[in-house]
Amino acid sequence: MLTAILVLGGLGLVGGIGLVVASRVFYVEVDPRIDKINDVLPGANCGGCGYPGCRGYAEAVVKGKAKMSDCAPGGTEAVDGIAAILGVEAEKVEPRVAVVRCSGDQDRGKEKFIYDGIADCRSAHRIGGGHKICPSGCLGLGTCSAVCSFDAVVITDRRIAVIDAAKCTGCGNCVEACPRDLIGLYPESHKVHILCSNREKGARVKKYCSCGCIACKLCAKESEHIKMDGLIALVTTESIPEDAPIPEEASLICTPGVILDERHYGHVAWATDPAVRDDFKTRAKAMKKKRKAERDAKKKAKAEAKAAKAPDEKKPDEKKDDEKPAGEDGK
């Protein structure tokens, strides 16, 4: 009994001394700020910053290799935290969220063949250019969802990726994963998104997708923040000042309903809920009706004004007659 106690106790003692010695001899000086920064980071190890895990990023920040604003998931909290630890002024960043610029799911965007293979968009994209006829249609196999550390990407039943803005941290992993370049990062304050990336001619787009941008430019006329880039309308990636937001008409004017207005509908509901679409259509109709009424009223007022001014002149009427048939031909 005594021997046992002595042997075990002795073993423990020797081991303990060994540990103490090792911890002294092999002590590595670590910058205490690294641990502190690590603590203010979200700890998701998403890799969005380009460093191996949050600790890797913390080291890089301390060494000055990385910017304190590179941790998208951490947002302003992390930036403030890091700035406090490092004793410098916090960089100003507006958090961004990812948006999938396509809403052509199986019901809206036609497919050109039946894809049979692994559920990976990169692989599918390489076979026959992907199964969507639209060269920039979402394949809906969920590669973006697989790389998301925050569970923010939803693949709907009808196979399209939708990003839940509430969960998205803007780390940008999905942006890199998408083989069709459909995902963009936009400042959080953006409430209007154009959900299409198609750069083909409108007439062609209409053949295979019921919600593709046909480059009619109507939305660009509604807001200075929307610009045409060739055959696609793009919302600026700069921040939009609060006092000059994109008006809701920019969304309502779009005939194929490509433009989502977050002030009225959520991303996921927009993609999945038919009632939302119906509501959108009703509102769009009402808006257009209102516009038409306004236009008519203006025209009427103008005509009346003109009539009052120069009742003898017939030219304007003639012009109108000339225009009409041409307009009909155009249709």
């Binding site: 050109k112 039946i114 894809y115 293979g117």
Partner: peptide
Amino acid sequence: AARALVVSSS
């Protein structure tokens, strides 16, 4: 009809 073709990797 061609649209119904199955496309897969070899």
